[in-house]
C-alpha cells in the first residue's frame, strides 16, 4: 500500500458517499445514470468474486464488501426509493455496446484463460468505460448539478491516482499489471474533458454547463 493507492481508494469511497448524500438530501436521483450505476454493480461482482476464495488483507476485504454493497444500495435507491425522479428517456446509452466488446476483449487479452481470470479482466475493461452512459446523459442535457460534478470528480480522481501508484509499484516492487494500467489510463483519459470543465467552471463557483 502506498499513498497514491490509499488516496485513490479514499477518493473512490468519497465519490460513493457524495452520491448517496446527494440522493438523500435532494430526495432525487436526477442527473444520475442508472445504467452507469448498474454497470458498476456488474464490475464489482465480477472483480470481487475472489472474496470467495482469496484472502488479501482486512483492508482489501472490507473495501470490497463495501463497494459491492454500496453499489447495490445505490441501485435500490434509484430503482425503488427515488424511482419517480429518474428519467429513463435521458439515460439512453446502449450498454450492450460496452458489455459485449469488453467481454470479447477479456476473452482475447487476459493473463490466463480461466473463468475467474476472464471475469477479473472483463471487470477491468468494463470499469474503464462504465462512465459512458453518465457522460452521455450529461452531454444530452448539457448541464449537471454541482453535487453530481463533485461525485464525478472524486470518481475520476480515484483511477487517476492509481496511475502514480502503478509507477511507484514498478520502481519499488518491480511489478507491472499491463491490463490494469492500460485500462486505467483509458479510464482516466475519458474524464479529461470533464475535469477541464470542472476545474475551470465548477471550482470557480459557476454552474456545470456544456457549450451548446
Amino acid at each position: 500500500m502506498n499513498i497514491f493507492r490509499l488516496l485513490g481508494d479514499l477518493a473512490h469511497l468519497a465519490s460513493i458517499f457524495i452520491l448517496v448524500h446527494k440522493m438523500h438530501t435532494t430526495r432525487s436521483c436526477r442527473g444520475i445514470s442508472f445504467k452507469t450505476q448498474a454497470l458498476y454493480v456488474l464490475v464489482f461482482l465480477t472483480r470481487y468474486i475472489d472474496l470467495l476464495y482469496t484472502w488479501i488483507s482486512l483492508y482489501n476485504f472490507v473495501m470490497k464488501v463495501f463497494f459491492i454493497s454500496s453499489s447495490g444500495y445505490i441501485l435500490y435507491l434509484m430503482k425503488y426509493r427515488f424511482r419517480p425522479t429518474h428519467d429513463p428517456s435521458l439515460d439512453t446509452f446502449k450498454v450492450e455496446y460496452l458489455v459485449g466488446p469488453c467481454f470479447v476483449l477479456a476473452l482475447i487479452f487476459n493473463y490466463r484463460f480461466e473463468v475467474t481470470e476472464i471475469l477479473w479482466t472483463f471487470s477491468i475493461y468494463l470499469e474503464a468505460v462504465a462512465i459512458f452512459p453518465q457522460l452521455f446523459m450529461m452531454q444530452r442535457t448539457g448541464e449537471a448539478e454541482t453535487i453530481t460534478t463533485h461525485y464525478l470528480a472524486a470518481l475520476g480522481a480515484y483511477r487517476a491516482l492509481y496511475i502514480p501508484n502503478w509507477i511507484y509499484r514498478y520502481f519499488t516492487e518491480g511489478t507491472v499489471d499491463p491490463i490494469a494500467v492500460v485500462a486505467g489510463i483509458v479510464q482516466t483519459g475519458l474524464y479529461l474533458d470533464f475535469f477541464y470543465v470542472y476545474v475551470t467552471k465548477v471550482l470557480q463557483g459557476q454552474k456545470f454547463e456544456l457549450p451548446a
Binding site: D9, D50, N60, K64, Y111, Y162, T175, D177
Partner: peptide
C-alpha cells in the same frame, strides 16, 4: 505462474 500479477488492488 509468476507472470500473472497478483490481483491485490481494488
Amino acid at each position: 505462474d509468476g507472470t500473472q500479477p497478483a490481483h491485490d488492488e481494488l
